[in-house]
Design a protein around this nucleic acid. Structure first.
Lengths: 209, 209
DNA sequence: TCGGTGGTTTACGCAGTGTCAAGTCATCAT
DNA sequence: ATGATGACTTGACACTGCGTAAACCACCGA
């Protein structure tokens, strides 16, 4: 494919388009057009169609690109390498707070487009479904460790954690209401802790403190 | 083109446009164009510009129109006429669950448009700010009645209630994840109750249900 | 030398918003 | 009756942005 010395770009054109699209999305207040992206990437508008089919295709590809370039794999192993389910949950919130902030602009575009764009909706949904499945694993683990309040099934708990830590609420609380990221982490954690977790039992079968 | 008595519409044209826009929004899966709305209202496209200035103007007006026609005043007095702050909160969740469902389609359009439409964003934000202020009153009342867990300030609690009962989470939980409206009401209530409320103390003046 | 790969340019079609100018037609005051 | 006004219409046009098509070009490997 690309490697080093093709006549034009030194790096892969596809990558460059993605990188510039991402850049533009972060910098601009509004949704960039294909023409803008093309120009910034030093490429014709048609080249984008060549690589991604259409507008949705570009943005769907962008999601994966960004995940990779932000090192989501590493984050993932940090979160799921936690010693306990409860700690996993805490790290989840901590990590999501940071990550959601990083990709918030892009998220907004993706969310906005879903309404009339089938392909975009499918791509986004797919991503969110994986996230949900991951969380179910976490709450099941918490339940297995006897730390899930018996007001909740693991599935219910996972759904709520998932929903509360979604981009929408994050954006509202930090961007609009003005919470700092630290406050967000702390308070969301508190919300979930107070409502879903039991106090850890010290010895064997001690009563509630 | 239309009826009989007055030269053109029998009911106020502006109202008719709003009514049909609302109808179309509910029926259609995607965002209706001005041409569609105009046609359905039996009016030329230009008339819309005459009444609302532009597209955003129409949708901003639509929000108020819908509030009125769904009787939001009555709902409001039901919610805020509750005997206690805690009961107010319960009714808030109950009512929002119903109301959010009614206007969900419209909400989606409004939310999607915010990204690149200043006027639309301002209109929506204004609405949500009022809601937030209302909720602060509720949590302050709850605090005044000694029922707010001392993990939270009234402001923090209000922010969280507001965020959790927003259209986004509602849509995700009911439309995507598949909770029924009853489950939504019940579980969101439980989430907030467990994390924010203290058990009522019998000793003092008991004003419980 | 040839063909494929990965781009390029130029051009067009289409939908939808927003604007403008001119025209129709009831109603109301004079 | 006249003429002004307000509400709405028709028709045309500019502009943006997406998507498609066709022809061309430089480089590389066989």
């Amino acid at each position: 494919m690309s490697s080093s010395s093709s006549h034009y770009g030194d790096i892969d054109t596809r990558q460059r388009i993605l990188a510039e699209a991402w850049d533009l999305l972060e910098e601009k207040g509004s949704e960039p057009t294909l023409a803008e992206i093309a120009e910034k990437a030093g490429v014709s508008r048609q080249t984008i169609y060549l690589h991604f089919g259409d507008r949705s295709g570009l943005f769907v590809a962008l999601v994966d690109y960004v995940d990779v370039s932000l090192g989501s794999e590493k984050l993932r192993s940090y979160v799921f390498g936690a010693p306990t389910g409860v700690e996993t949950l805490r790290r989840w919130i901590e990590t999501m707070s940071w990550y959601t902030g990083k990709i918030d602009r892009m998220t907004q575009v993706l969310e906005a487009g879903q309404y009339d764009d089938k392909a975009l909706a499918a791509g986004w949904r797919n991503r969110m479904n994986r996230r949900q499945a991951l969380l179910l694993g976490v709450t099941e683990r918490i339940a297995g460790e006897g730390r899930l309040a018996n007001d909740w099934t693991p599935a219910e708990a996972a759904d709520l954690v998932y929903t509360v830590t979604m981009p929408g609420p994050w954006r509202e609380l930090t961007r609009e209401i003005g919470w700092t990221e630290d406050q967000y982490k702390e308070r969301i954690w508190k919300l979930l802790e107070l409502s879903m977790l039991t106090v850890p039992l010290e010895g064997h079968h001690s009563e509630i403190v």
